[in-house]
Simulated scan of single mutants.
Amino acid sequence: MTPTGKLITTGEGRDLVLVRTYRAPIEDVWASVTEPERTARWFGPWEGDAAPGATIRVRMSFEEDEPWCETRIDACEPPHRLALSMSDASGDWRVELLLAETAGVTELRFAHHLAPGAPLAEMGAGWEYYLDLLTAAREGAPRPSFTDYYPAMKPYYDALT
């Protein structure tokens, strides 16, 4: 696996940004990241009334013990932008998914707005893994193994800081 994440300095701090592209209409990719039966294939199912400002529960199906985490929907602008704040045992996370389609190809730009002192190597490898799970789910391909991502990607992400 080749790491793809970039560390970008913003006016508010640092963002870890990863990009994936799909030969698919934007609405189909949007469904993959928002519909509970489709998110279950690569991240985990969710439950609750989804709306901007609402909090849903997401089951992290590919983590040890498959924990549930509270997830606030900060923004939802179908089919282009989804911003979420999550809380779990490892802390609070703010992420944003931005989608754009050109000529039948949809780009998914994933940004994790990093908190100071965030463990970049673990987060980078983790998001690479989850986004590759998304790709595998969309393509009907075998799921990757997290052991192929971490600690193998640690030197790459350590070098970004």
Rank of each mutant, 00 (worst) to 15 (best):
W68I: 15
R59Q: 14
T34L: 03
D92V: 02
M153A: 10
L108E: 02
E66C: 06
H113R: 14
M86W: 06
S145Q: 06
P67D: 03
S87P: 02
E77Y: 04
F146M: 07
E101S: 02
V19L: 08
W68S: 09
A24R: 03
G124N: 01
R94K: 14
D88T: 03
V95P: 02
F43T: 04
Y150I: 10
Y22R: 04
T55H: 11
D15M: 01
T161W: 13
M86K: 02
I56V: 11
H112E: 14
F146W: 13
A136Y: 12
K6A: 07
Y129K: 02
K6M: 04
A121D: 06
A159M: 03
T39W: 14
R94G: 08
P67C: 04
A141I: 01
E66V: 06
P116A: 13
A118M: 09
Y157D: 05
R72Q: 08
A121N: 06
D88I: 11
P119S: 15
V95H: 08
T161H: 12
E70K: 09
H113D: 11
A100L: 10
T161P: 06
D148S: 09
A103H: 11
P52L: 07
A111T: 03
W42E: 13
T106H: 02
E63Y: 15
A51H: 05
R72G: 08
D74L: 12
G91R: 12
P79T: 03
E64C: 09
G91A: 14
R23V: 10
I8W: 13
A24L: 00
E47W: 13
T21D: 04
Y149V: 15
S87M: 08
A125L: 08
P79E: 07
D49R: 09
T102G: 06
A115M: 11
E70M: 13
R109S: 06
E37R: 05
E139C: 00
L131F: 12
G53V: 06
Y149E: 09
R94N: 12
R138S: 06
L108Q: 07
W46Q: 15
Y150P: 05
A111M: 05
S90D: 14
D158V: 12
E12I: 08
V33W: 00
A31K: 07
A100G: 11
A51P: 00
A40R: 07
G117K: 07
P25D: 00
E64G: 02
T147L: 13
A121W: 06
R94T: 11
L18T: 05
G48T: 03
E96L: 12
M60C: 03
A136K: 03
L134C: 00
E128Q: 14
L134S: 04
L18Q: 10
A111C: 04
A51T: 05
A54E: 04
G53T: 03
G48Y: 02
W68V: 15
S32A: 15
P78I: 03
C76F: 02
T71P: 14
L82C: 07
S32E: 12
G13S: 06
A51R: 14
T135E: 15
A136S: 12
F146N: 04
A121I: 12
E64Y: 04
L131Y: 13
